[in-house]
Design a binder for these strands. Structure first.
Length: 597
RNA sequence: GGCCCCGUAGUGUAGCGGUCUAACAUGCCACCCUGUCACGGUGGAGAUCAGGGGUUCGAAUCCCCUCGGGGUCGCCA
């Protein structure tokens, strides 16, 4: 080793020791005579003093050094002269008196600050990701991620799970997201696909008798990116045999709560995790990836306004739509501009409009409310009783602002859930140090796909219906609930899972319901159905997203901040400049020809 | 594919129709400096204002297109 100690570990107790350090020049302070260099490695920073009277050639070397040069320094650890200690620094009581110094490598001036926490354009950071990762924030995030994965492995290993790798090149199945395809050289015209998840493989592992499986698995989806979505992401993929929904939820709750306690003890977790049915989630929050850190629940106002003079509301209800709203506490004094912003946001999400109702100027009892204190374009169409009814339903008082949307229930819920998140943000209602996990249960098994004119899986086709709902598959598929569950946290979907079908008859029936021909079923799922003829155990699992989990623990806004080499919004890897063209020879070998477009 | 936002020295920002020959901070270069730690001091270099077109007597500034980046809707079983 070129170092005897790390730059971050030296303390008072090391005084007098002769040490050798190696690291990067974080900062150099040249006093003409004395030169101070903060030498940085992964563990931290130590101040090295270069004194011409102690080692003149060494001092000469130090004067040539610039930021991010890599140095090897030997010297004695000394107590800093009294009065010059730096309490900001863990190593601030000592310094290393350089006796010998070698420049291991030089560095050009970096394209952005490495020793300062300044926001830099993300594309530049990604182009020089190896420099970006030198910055404390990134090092912190990567370290956190490592510890999370380490914790998960230890936790599951202790519970008797086997970590098993599954292939990255598998078979394409056209349902779900678009596959990333890998052309086969050996088999002209045939392709592998990168897994969207190891779903079928882990179920085969259950048939194989593994009983408890997990994997830190890379998953690939060729869909557009978002702040919390990348073309490839990492899941804790997990599957167990002979379990019920309760077993899976209990395991995950124990894992997550103990993980947070161990790794981020300063963060609050609400236990036990609240359980919300899908229908309740939609009714109360307009979305199933809800944020339970604050209330501001939506309220259905349809019955109150059905007979109102306000045509927009009345007509919506008559046409089978819904009128719902939320209450933004203390926002009755919102300016015209602020209201316009919210209106624009609502319209951007598909609402025809947003009705705002300001209840007086100051806090107080609703009993004192009079119609002329109500500021709203709909005020003259509503009775005082109706306004009070609406306010009551939304838990509003004087001084509050009501945000009301009318229209198709899907749109109304979408818009209100986004407005709720927005207002929660603006009013700082969501404590950034709280992780509000929740289980969402009782999802519908199927959803009607308008475009294709057929039923489609809400989760995936291997999800088991609730036992007692199986008869409904023939009579009222829309009413069938599944043994499917999500974990959400602070407004993000963190995990999805289900108890799987282990009966090949039932599985076959679901496939048929989804409109697959026998031939298609055989072609896409033949192996699994066949495997299910050989004693498949009842089984189920779940797959929490590691990127999102670490993002929440790190307090970051995007998962890119917790991925070493992420892709940008256009799915480009700016570090390596991928994707890139390939040679004609490569294409020919793969029996591929590019189309003119 | 739609909508919204952004693009000014290496970096981060200011400037938003004329006095911009583009400012500030920091970084960079040179010199001075033996107790600093975001060291200090003096001086200097550094920007076709993303690119193209238009409006105007005059454009970093207004309009259009293109490119690049971000957010989002669609999409993500």
């Amino acid at each position: 080793m070129l170092k005897s100690h790390s730059c971050g570990e030296l303390r008072k107790g090391d005084v007098g020791k002769r040490v050798t350090l190696a690291g990067w020049v974080d900062r150099r302070r040249d006093h003409g005579g004395l030169i101070f260099i903060d030498l940085r490695d992964r563990a931290g920073v130590s101040q090295v003093v270069f004194n011409p009277e102690v080692a003149s050639s060494c001092h000469e070397t130090a004067s040539q050094v610039r930021s991010e040069y890599v140095l090897n320094v030997s010297g004695e650890v000394a107590l800093r002269p009294s009065g010059t200690e730096n309490l900001q620094l863990a190593t601030g009581e000592i310094e290393v008196i350089a006796g010998d110094c070698t420049i291991l490598s030089t560095s050009e001036t970096p394209p952005f600050y490495i020793n300062q926490e300044v926001e830099v354009e993300e594309s530049l950071r990604l182009r020089y990701r190896y420099l970006d990762l030198r910055r404390p924030r990134m090092l912190r995030n990567l370290t956190l991620r490592h510890r999370v994965v380490e914790y998960i492995r230890n936790f599951l290993n202790a519970k008797g799970f086997l970590e098993i790798e599954t292939p990255i090149m598998i078979k394409s199945t056209p349902e779900g997201a678009r596959d990333y395809l890998v052309p086969s050289r050996v088999h002209p015209g045939k392709f592998y696909a990168l897994p969207q998840s190891p779903q079928q493989l882990k179920q085969l592992l259950m048939v194989a008798g593994v009983e408890k499986y997990y994997q830190i698995a890379k998953c690939f989806r060729d869909e557009d990116t978002r702040a919390d979505r990348q073309p490839e992401h990492t899941q804790l993929d997990l599957e167990m045999s002979f379990v019920t929904e309760e077993d899976i939820l209990g395991l995950i709750e124990e894992l997550f709560t103990s993980l947070v306690t161990a790794i981020k003890p300063d963060m609050k977790v609400i236990t036990p995790f609240p359980r919300v049915t899908y229908d309740d989630a939609i009714a109360r929050f307009g979305t199933d990836h809800l944020d339970l850190r604050f209330s501001m629940e939506t309220g259905d106002l349809s019955d109150i306004v059905a007979d109102s003079e306000f045509a927009v509301f009345r007509d919506t209800v008559v046409a089978g739509g819904k009128v719902k709203g939320i209450c933004a506490p203390g926002c009755s004094s919102y300016s015209r501009h602020q209201l316009d912003e919210l209106n624009k946001m609502a319209q951007g999400l598909g609402a025809r409009g947003l009705l705002t109702v300001a209840l007086g100027d100051t806090p107080g009892s609703l009993d004192d409310l009079t119609l002329d204190m109500v500021k709203s374009v709909a005020a003259r169409f509503l009775t005082l009783e109706q306004v009070k009814g609406i306010a009551g339903r939304l838990g509003a008082g004087m001084g509050d602002l009501l945000l009301i949307v009318a229209g198709d229930p899907k749109v109304v819920n979408k818009v209100l859930s986004e407005l709720r998140a927005e207002m929660g943000n603006r009013l700082e209602l969501a404590d950034p140090n709280t992780l509000a996990f929740a289980f969402i249960q009782d999802y519908p098994l199927l959803k009607w796909d308008e475009e294709l004119g057929r039923w489609d899986s809400e989760h995936h086709p291997f999800t088991a219906p609730k036992e007692e709902h199986i008869p409904l598959l023939d009579t009222a598929p829309e009413r069938v609930r599944s043994q499917c569950y999500d974990i959400v946290c602070n407004g993000y979907e963190l995990a999805s899972g289900s108890i799987r079908i282990h009966d090949s008859e039932l599985q076959h029936k679901i496939f048929s319901l989804l409109g697959y021909s026998d031939e298609e079923i055989q072609q896409r799922f033949g192996t699994m159905l066949e495997a299910f003829h050989y004693g498949p155990p009842p089984h189920g699992g779940i797959a929490p997203g590691i990127d999102r989990l670490v993002m929440l623990l790190a307090g970051e806004e995007t998962i890119r901040e917790v991925i070493a080499f992420p892709k940008n919004q256009s799915a480009v890897d700016l570090t390596l400049d991928a994707p890139s063209p390939v040679t004609e020879e490569q294409l020919a070998e793969l029996h591929l020809q590019l189309r003119d477009e």
